[in-house]
Design a protein around this nucleic acid. Structure first.
Ligand SMILES: [Zn+2]
Length: 416
DNA sequence: ATTGCCGGGTG
DNA sequence: CACCCGGCAAT
């Protein structure tokens, strides 16, 4: 019945989409208008009205998620992002706790809207492809009326398209603004955060984290549009024993981030990502040089860059603290692979667990992640994980993720 | 100033 | 026991 079924470009008006808001999270909105600059079809801009705030902002095509646009699988979801998943055969609303780009894993805390009054929460691990940003209309049983695209979003595009990697050249810019989180007392603090600009709903955990790791000052992100969720070159994600994050300093409209072109690959590239495997660290980089610099600087406490001489005869210890991951097939792998919990030689050698010197849990994981310490360390006893009497195993990369996620949520949802 | 952890607590 | 922590030696 309705207006024919031809999928014209006109029908996008009124389409519900997800667009990045000021908090960096995707919010629902409707396309109000499409502005196409004369000539170039590539840079169409879409006016989208936020469902919650009713405000209208413009976005470019790449920033929009939804039917006819990018799919979630090509984006990096930030903690706190509201999502919809099918859990226990039921569509449930949830919030992203963490999205691991490398493994395509998304840790989601679902709010079991079940019977009773106790809203039970459950944290589940899903693949990015199983995540929906838009809630599916009812139960998908009843067919909708007109809104042609009806279904939700999953246009199967594929991997995130990153910039090309280059190495060997001195293009590894060491310039990035790193902000470090220092130890903090949990008890009473008069004022920590600079400003409370808006009273956001309840994505406190994630927001807090983001604020902390992004900038000690103005937590302003982007207003209407953003150049790209990732304006950085090498740094993919971070936080860890010492949490770092590089920001995108200037978002002018320079034609740097976006490709010159019109189309993006609707195919998946096999990208190599370098994952720091240092306990508690989740840094990901796009080049060997970069990840080694990271390890050197943050974990080995060695100079970030080496001179030619030093480069010749160095212990290649950095190599023990990262793995390279190939990405090609988004399908596959129902469960996560095991990150090497090893710190010794990858080729069989582990004299004694020792991240260097006599660094124990406290130093390794930092005060922020006390829950990752071995029990003995938590009790201020002799470490049972590192050193001579290494008995307690190191948590796998994945476990670390889960633990810190649990801790994060419980910490934020009940700051007793 | 920070880290590792003994020894001395508590339920 | 599991757990917490004052305080001190070494860094
Ligand atoms: Zn320990």
């Amino acid at each position: 019945m309705s207006t024919g079924k031809r999928v014209a470009k006109r029908s996008i008006l009124g389409t519900k989409v997800m667009v990045p808001g000021q908090d960096g999270l995707y919010h629902p909105g409707w396309i109000q208008a499409v502005k196409t600059p004369e000539g170039s079809l590539s840079d169409a801009r879409y006016a989208v009205k936020f469902e919650e705030t009713k405000r209208v902002f413009e976005f470019c095509e790449n920033d929009i998620l939804g039917p006819g646009f990018e799919s979630v699988t090509s984006k990096h979801l930030l903690p706190g992002q509201v999502v919809f998943v099918t859990h226990n055969n039921r569509e449930m609303c949830g919030k992203v706790v963490r999205h691991d780009v490398e493994s395509q894993d998304v840790l989601v805390k679902v709010f079991g809207g079940g019977a009773g009054n106790s809203l039970e929460e459950e944290t589940v691990l899903l693949k990015i492809e199983d995540i929906r940003l838009l809630e599916s209309r009812k139960s998908a049983r009843l067919v909708n009326s007109d809104t042609d695209f009806s279904k939700l979003a999953d246009v199967s595009i594929a991997m995130a398209e990153k910039k090309k990697i280059q190495k060997g050249l001195s293009s590894d810019v060491p310039r990035s603004d790193y902000v470090q989180i220092a130890g903090s007392r949990k008890r009473r603090t008069s004022e920590n955060l600079p400003d409370d600009e808006e009273t956001l709903s309840e994505c406190s955990a994630a927001m807090l984290l983001m604020k902390l790791s992004c900038s000690p000052h103005s937590p302003r992100y982007f207003q209407g549009d953003l150049p790209s969720p990732l304006g950085v070159d090498d740094v993919l994600s971070s936080s860890g024993a010492s949490s770092f994050r590089s920001l995108t300093p200037s978002p002018p409209l320079s034609s740097s981030v976006t490709d010159e072109g019109i189309v993006k690959d609707i195919r998946m590239k096999s990208t190599t990502i370098y994952q720091c495997t240092f306990p508690g660290c989740r840094e990901q980089r796009l080049s060997v040089e970069s990840i080694e610099s990271h390890v050197r600087k943050e974990h080995l406490k060695r100079p970030e860059y080496l001179t030619v001489e030093e480069d010749e005869d160095r212990d290649h210890e950095e190599e023990f603290y990262y793995t390279e991951i190939e990405q090609s097939h988004p399908l596959e792998a129902p469960f996560t692979h095991l990150a090497s919990p090893n710190n010794g030689t990858t080729t069989g050698k582990s004299p004694a667990r020792r991240p260097r010197d006599g660094k124990k849990c406290r130093k390794v994981y930092g005060l922020e992640q006390r829950d990752l310490w071995c029990t003995q360390c938590k009790w201020k006893k002799a470490c049972a994980r590192f050193g001579t009497n290494a008995s307690e195993p190191m948590p796998t990369h994945h476990q670390s993720l889960l633990i810190s996620a649990q801790n994060l949520s419980s910490h934020t949802l009940s700051p007793r």
